[in-house]
């Protein structure tokens, strides 16, 4: 069974989106745009799968109201992961491989601005030994960044280079929250947010949503001129204990990349919410300098929680569907300091 991405849409990445934490206001137009682009109606979709988080919204069952945006009548085949929707895409891919559906619509949404995001993310940490100290997500990434700097794996200038490249690339991405031409010297003259990280090293706080359409074999060919065929799809998780991991690399990203086979990639859309993680992931996944990195600008230019990983895969697929790439990868991450990583390899034919 062959499965392909045949469509992608994302809501504008915004610091304060005009949306409820249910995401409905973002999802309704998004579904409409995505379905219309392929001449489909919501009743044509065989399987719906989503990713979101109750802690982002501050209450239990926050994903339930999002189902309203589907218009789930007659009742639909539907599922939800409490993860970035890139993993919902994995569940949908598997579902299509079983033959139980021939199309799937996968979506993720997050209103990151509703709470104090850095502090909320501390609740992902071990609830006995770590979370009671409330270490925030940026501080943990900063510990990782310094380890790599100490080991000579990246410098603050190389980190700033990533920000410069990402923001310039985002100029061609109308959904991006941040874009523009900046120079390294200006960035490095800015104060630290969490020494050794400056603002440009950290993804912005973003409200947003993303949706991806999948279809199998002939259905994909019939609906899309140049489907982005999934040739490899793998994910791995590492121990969460950051004291037990070599934080300067990512075993899980390396394994996922090897399993998905990233040889011959033209374009990579990497979900790196911090500049040093862009470098770390490129090294861990073995992507050489010929690979075009994050033509969308990546998470550093817009990081809607629980949708940003899916958006990377959608952006990678867009490069294929538009004929700009022959073989592309989309990557997603989750958990403190890149604990969990997913790689989806897509190909045009």
């Amino acid at each position: 069974m062959e499965v392909a991405v045949i469509g992608f849409a994302q809501a504008p990445n915004q610091r304060h989106g005009q949306t409820t934490t249910n995401g409905v206001e973002m999802l309704v137009p998004l579904f409409q745009e995505l379905l219309t682009s392929r001449g489909l109606s919501r009743k044509d979709i065989g399987f719906w799968c989503s990713g979101s988080s109750d802690y982002l919204a501050g209450r239990a069952f926050s994903f339930v109201t999002a189902v309203d945006a589907i218009g789930a009548w007659p009742p639909t085949m539907e599922s939800h992961v409490e993860m970035d929707a890139a993993w919902a895409l994995y569940e949908a891919w598997v579902k299509l491989l079983t033959g139980e559906a021939d199309t799937a619509l996968v979506y993720g949404f997050g209103k990151s601005s509703a709470g104090n995001l850095r502090r909320v993310m501390a609740l992902q940490l071990d609830p006995y030994l770590v979370a009671p100290l409330w270490p925030d997500s940026v501080s943990i990434a900063a510990l990782q960044a310094r380890l790599g700097m100490q080991a000579g794996l990246w410098s603050e200038k190389e980190m700033a280079d990533v920000a410069v490249r990402s923001r310039a690339a985002a100029l061609s991405n109308p959904a991006a929250q941040i874009s523009g031409h900046v120079n390294v010297e200006d960035l490095l003259s800015q104060p630290f947010v969490a020494d050794p990280l400056r603002a440009h090293d950290c993804a912005p706080i973003t409200d947003g949503a993303a949706a991806v359409l999948l279809a199998t074999g002939d259905r994909a060919r019939e609906l899309c001129e140049r489907p982005a065929w999934i040739t490899g799809f793998a994910h791995r998780v590492d121990t969460q204990n950051i004291g037990l991991r070599d934080l300067t690399t990512s075993v899980s990203a390396a394994k996922a990349a090897a399993d998905a086979n990233v040889d011959g990639i033209d374009v990579a859309e990497i979900h790196a919410p911090f500049t040093h993680q862009d470098i770390l992931l490129r090294n861990a996944m073995g992507l050489d300098s010929s690979v075009v990195m994050n033509p969308s600008g990546g998470a550093l230019c817009g990081n809607p929680m629980f949708a940003a990983g899916l958006a990377r895969i959608g952006s990678a697929a867009t490069e294929i569907m538009a004929g700009r790439a022959g073989r592309a990868l989309g990557h997603a991450t989750s958990g403190p300091a890149l604990q969990q990583n997913l790689v989806c390899v897509l190909e045009g034919r």
Partner: peptide, 21 residues
């Protein structure tokens, strides 16, 4: 082995003045 600086601590963190993780 590594450290980062928290200039403006959040509620509940170990210290209410600037500190290092």
């Amino acid at each position: 082995l590594s450290w980062s600086w928290m200039p403006d601590p959040f509620d509940g963190q170990p210290l209410d003045r600037p500190f290092a993780w």
